[in-house]
Design a protein around this nucleic acid. Structure first.
Lengths: 211, 211
DNA sequence: CTTGACACTGAACGATTGTTTAACTATACG
DNA sequence: CGTATAGTTAAACAATCGTTCAGTGTCAAG
């Protein structure tokens, strides 16, 4: 990660401060006013630099849609932020995944740092309370919380898949040249699941269990 | 706090999820698209209602400047603010436990909210990276992170105990009238451990594993 | 039957806001 | 000396976005 200039650190610090105070990102002209710029283009330049160096990400054309992708900890103390991610917990994930956001069925939330959870901050992780023991041979038990990331599965990934209108946890198997299938990791269960219409909602990254 | 209609709850839920997922509030037209409205005015009405009832606040004329004034669970009950705890991770816990804090051997830190970790904030929790497979029958594998609280063990608790100068994970068994002992939960291991000098460093509250 | 709330359509307006192009200064590098 | 980067000014543009006005339909309360 490239280093930031002094000015860029100031800008980034202001972004964070504004976000923490108002829970909203500032607009270009608010940043401009705060630093006394006479042109919004001064802001533009800095934000482009920050984005180029990977510190923030933005959605072009949309208002107030910065995101700070990196939590630069040590050194500059205007930061005390850790990479803690707030993740919704679903009991059951309803069909579809229309907008990357699912309104129904949220039963709680958890906070965990991205590294421990094995997820990337940018992606929209969600969590799932495991019901049933179809994955006990993979060390996932009834009542466990599984943290997932929505993305296409690779071979051997544990995935949350929509089967018969319900989300279940299975291992995704795809050998080359063959059709993929899902496998339950419990010796006493039917282990193979043919995949007709495969709706993968996410791949499991980590699991949390209360002992 | 006035009560919300079903539709208003849906809107509010979407606002929260969008904020948590994107760290940005949605625009009117994003809300419109998500709910399939054909007019942004439908959104206007709901947001006005939500603001009137005190659930959100906004800055007129500015883009994406909602704020939710309270956090809610599904029942519209304000959730007490979650407590994220910073926990040190030890590879091996050295002898003693002088101040509840052991600096040597710290291999990292993790952040997690107290409820998910099953711990109480007041106590000084610590985490331990599991080595070996002495507890696989309890669903704890090599490489797992176990979160512990220093306190006296009860029967059947999984504890971190100092054996032969090394910290290992065992289940603590104490039947009344008998001497306590430690039990490894792996069928292929010697399961019973006599306890000469029992040094319990903490009891396990939860486990986190990367899949 | 009327009133009022809730939920929504449709179109248009104007302000906010991100973006672009052009030009200027200063500093550092080779 | 030329070039590159950082930082800034200036004016204008176009898309996004919140807002308003006018109107439709439903349903429960009075």
């Amino acid at each position: 990660m490239d280093e930031l200039t002094l000015r860029q650190q100031e800008i980034l610090g202001y972004l964070q401060l504004h976000m923490r105070s108002y829970s909203t990102w500032p607009s270009f002209r608010e940043i401009q006013a705060h630093f006394g710029f006479r042109s919004t283009n001064a802001v533009m330049g800095h934000l482009r630099a920050l984005e180029k160096k990977g510190y923030i990400s933005r959605v072009p054309g949309q208002a107030r849609t910065f995101r700070i992708t990196m939590d630069f900890n040590e050194e500059n103390q205007p930061t005390d932020s850790v990479e803690v991610v707030d993740i919704p917990i679903y009991g059951t994930i309803a069909a579809g995944y229309p907008d990357g956001v699912e309104t129904g069925g949220e039963i709680g939330r958890l906070q965990i740092d991205a590294e421990t959870a094995g997820i990337r901050r940018a992606r929209r992780a969600f969590a799932l309370k495991v019901r049933g023991d179809s994955m006990i041979d993979a060390g996932i038990f009834d009542g466990d919380i599984v943290i997932l990331e929505p993305r296409p599965p690779n071979n051997e990934d544990i995935v949350a898949a929509l089967i018969d209108g319900e989300t279940t946890l299975k291992r995704f198997i795809q050998k080359r040249g063959k059709a993929p299938f899902l496998k339950a990791e419990n010796k006493s269960y039917p282990q193979l699941h043919p995949v007709a219409e495969l709706v993968i909602q996410g791949i499991a990254k980590s699991v949390v269990r209360n002992l």
